[in-house]
Nucleic acid binder design. Structure first.
Length: 314
DNA sequence: AATGCCTCCAACCGCCTGCTA
DNA sequence: CTAGCAGGCGGTTGGAGGCAT
């Protein structure tokens, strides 16, 4: 026999969560830590299924979630990663630790898809396929300029309403958690603490850079040959090469043979100057983030300053 | 003021994978 | 080994609120 059912399917409440339910859920997690969702409905008396509880926590109540407008640079990261990884929102969210996959997915569907469409139309209204491929070779700066000059991506009225409601809950939760920290929830208490949150902001550069480097290399190496067709794009390889040199990552034997051959060939034929530049950048001080160098590699020098200036998380 | 349309996001649905009994 | 559930994920939707007429 398998596991027992997580919860009784009858009498399950659906729809928006009330503040009371939020408080019950958070107080339970404060005591027991996130996880073991199966026991949440029975232990708390919430008329919600365990799945709903988990979603509510991960997408809304979890401390450390950054809400509100996406920065132009965050947009750029999402666009770039979406082009590389597809609609792997969870994977993309792993590069933006303070954003939830649901938020990124919503933002993509409601804002970025439209902007991309406009961008592509602006590139070449007569040849959408060509414009699509051109887009990948366009710099993030082009897109940033385009989006900056476009109308606001989030209506101010909605943003303020949304922020005020979430902030109220957030403040409530922060107060509770600070008042009685529990050892078993230290992992998320770290994130909810404002002081440490500020530190986290300062360290986001390296955290995200490391996250990008390791996840990107891992996802590439785990990419089945049939999926990539044994080939990688110029952009992909340049990204990987840049990350590899910055992190001293060796090409893994586990890479598919043809992909590895392609990569090696590309590596050998790549401009010496390009590689030297990359290495030089990597060794320069103060260090730039891997992500910045990654983007820098694709967009030419001069973008880094914009990136740093644009995004508060960098 | 009333109505219809549009935008946005929280939450649900269904599928998949991995784990557990 | 197998059945069946938990957790994770991406796609989709319902409803609230704003805007245009």
């Amino acid at each position: 026999m398998g596991r027992p059912p997580c919860c009784d399917k009858d009498g399950i409440k659906k729809g928006p969560w009330t503040p009371e339910e939020d408080i019950i859920l958070v107080s339970f997690i404060q005591e027991h830590g996130p996880g073991n969702w199966r026991s949440v409905p029975t232990s708390t008396g919430l008329l919600r299924c365990s799945k709903s509880c988990r979603l509510r926590w991960t997408n809304y109540l979890r401390p450390g979630i950054k809400r509100g407008n996406f920065t132009p640079h965050e947009e750029g990261i999402i666009i770039h990663l979406q082009a590389l990884l597809g609609n792997k929102w969870a994977a993309i969210a792993s590069y933006l630790p303070r954003r939830t996959d649901n938020d990124i997915k919503n933002y993509w569907n409601t804002h970025l898809k439209k902007k991309l469409k406009k961008f592509r139309s602006a590139c070449d209204p007569l040849d959408q396929d060509s414009a699509s491929s051109q887009f990948m070779s366009k710099s993030l700066n082009d897109f940033d300029n385009f989006t900056t000059n476009s109308s606001s991506s989030l209506r101010p009225d909605q943003a303020s309403t949304y922020a005020s409601s979430t902030e109220n809950i957030s403040r409530l939760l922060e107060g509770w958690m600070r008042s009685s920290p529990k050892p078993n929830c230290s992992s998320f208490l770290l994130r909810e603490n404002q002081e440490q949150e500020n530190n986290s902001l300062e360290n986001d550069d390296q955290n995200i850079a490391d996250s990008v480097a390791t996840n990107y290399l891992r996802s590439y190496k785990e990419k089945p040959e049939q999926e990539s067709g044994g080939q990688i794009s110029h952009e992909e390889f340049e990204s990987i090469l840049s990350l590899e040199s910055l992190h001293n990552v060796e090409w893994d034997k586990s890479c598919s043979d043809s992909a590895a051959v392609t990569a090696k060939g590309f590596q050998n034929s790549a401009s010496t100057n390009e590689k030297a530049n990359t290495t030089m950048i990597a060794e320069s001080s103060p260090p730039l983030s891997v992500l910045e160098k990654w983007i820098l590699d694709e967009n030419g020098a001069g973008q880094v300053e914009d990136i740093i200036e644009l995004s508060p998380i960098f």
